[in-house]
């Protein structure tokens, strides 16, 4: 476990001594800031209009600002996650530093878990920017904190899944761009799998839709914490890391 922390800490430092962390935080801050601004502006405008029309029903911040904001964050995450995970192994294989890790008294799963955890913390930092936006709403309003908490948890789990897949893909190539591109393609595919149910109601379509990543995010966004969805995310993470470990082992036989 100590080794996991060592590798994780090194990865986190690796993000912050290179421009990548600042690029990610900056990009995400800009995009989610824009979303936040437009959602809030729209909310304020329609709120005023409703008041002028004499409506007694107050509008819900959760429904009109926070839910779409978190939904957008998850889509932006789709683009940013490959940027986080692509370097994990590809860079080490290109520069030869993988030889240091694989010849140190560290188990393969410790390397895998450490690397993934480092990337996950980086992703949480990115999410933190979004959380910061939402926190501002508490200054002037009193949104319900529960759907926010579950929403953020859902985003974290979702990101963890995609990162696990990205980590695996990163072990298959020494080229970071290929790793990033392939991760993006696979993530996008997992994203749009849910579309099958829109034109097909058969049993197999349901199964495929169940495998889609956003399918399991919806309950989180509504403030529902369903074990089924948590289990889905955790098992995808586990599966991705398991594949990574196998791939790392095979590196010794392949090379």
């Amino acid at each position: 476990m100590k080794n996991v922390l060592t590798i994780c800490a090194k990865e986190i430092k690796g993000y912050f001594v290179s421009p990548i962390a600042y690029l990610l935080l900056g990009l995400f801050g800009l995009i989610s800031g824009y979303f936040f601004y437009s959602a809030t502006a729209f909310f304020v405008m329609s709120g005023m209009r409703q008041q002028m029309m004499g409506s007694q029903q107050p509008m819900s911040v959760n429904e009109y600002v926070i839910a779409p904001l978190l939904g957008n964050s998850s889509v932006v995450g789709l683009f940013l996650i490959p940027l986080i995970s692509m370097r994990l192994f590809a860079e080490e294989m290109r520069s030869g530093t993988i030889e240091l890790l694989l010849t140190s008294p560290v188990r393969d799963w410790e390397i895998v878990l450490g690397k993934w955890a480092g990337a996950f913390v980086m992703y949480l930092c990115v999410l933190g920017v979004s959380a910061l936006n939402i926190a501002m709403l508490f200054i002037w309003g009193s949104p319900d904190w529960r759907p926010i908490a579950t929403g953020l948890l859902g985003l974290a789990l979702q990101g963890g899944c995609l990162l696990a897949i990205g980590t695996f893909i990163s072990t298959t190539t020494r080229n970071q761009i290929i790793a990033g591109g392939a991760t993006f393609a696979v993530s996008l595919l997992l994203w749009v799998l849910s579309w099958v149910t829109s034109y097909n109601e058969a049993g197999w379509a349901q199964v495929i839709a169940y495998m889609a990543i956003p399918t399991h995010y919806e309950p989180f966004a509504k403030g529902v914490l369903d074990t089924k969805d948590v289990v889905y995310y955790l098992s995808v993470i586990f599966f991705g890391l398991f594949l990574t470990k196998r791939s790392l082992e095979s590196l010794r036989w392949r090379s």
Binding site: G14, V17, S18, S95, G96, T97, I98, E99, L100
Partner: peptide, 8 residues
Amino acid sequence: TPPLYPEM
């Protein structure tokens, strides 16, 4: 090739 991380 010495296994060094250039950014460290």
